[in-house]
Amino acid sequence: MKKKKPFSELVIGIACMALGVVVFVAAGNLQQVKLGIGPSGFPKFIAVVLALLGLAQTATALIAGVEAPKFDVDKRAASLFAAAVAMSVAYVMLVTQIGFIILTPLLLLGMMYLFGERNIVKMLIIAIVTTACIWLLFTKVFLIFLPVGRIFA
């Protein structure tokens, strides 16, 4: 008996078709030219290709048969991932305000915690030494200025 495909395979196919249609319509609002492709030609071309690939993906999933949708998520893994993403996003949002020197050790501490380290002394040493080394290397050797933040500005 043929192995059924996960439900996500069908969703991916439909999403690709939808994306292809959206891009094709959006490209229609761009400038059109008589000779060559202009700004709209290439997006339209790729949108058609993407929609066709989505169709192929959907057809493959339907032919093989799809399993019922499952929502069994490993909660621990998902929360670790979500925390890592949240820390990274927070870093991007705050780095120009707080600065590299303060925020980077905090990110390192948080990340090490997520990776399972619990020895606070080791964590502090690694966070501070790494930040200091990167800061000195970039600002003094490469002469590339990292965000100082409003506190030090």
Binding site: L107, M111, F115, T131, I134, I144, L146
Partner: peptide, 18 residues
């Protein structure tokens, strides 16, 4: 990995910023 990956993350951030 618990030390290596966080350091890689910071290096990636610095690399992208630069």
């Amino acid at each position: 990995v618990k030390y290596l990956m966080p350091i890689i993350m910071v290096l990636c951030i610095v690399g992208a910023f630069c």
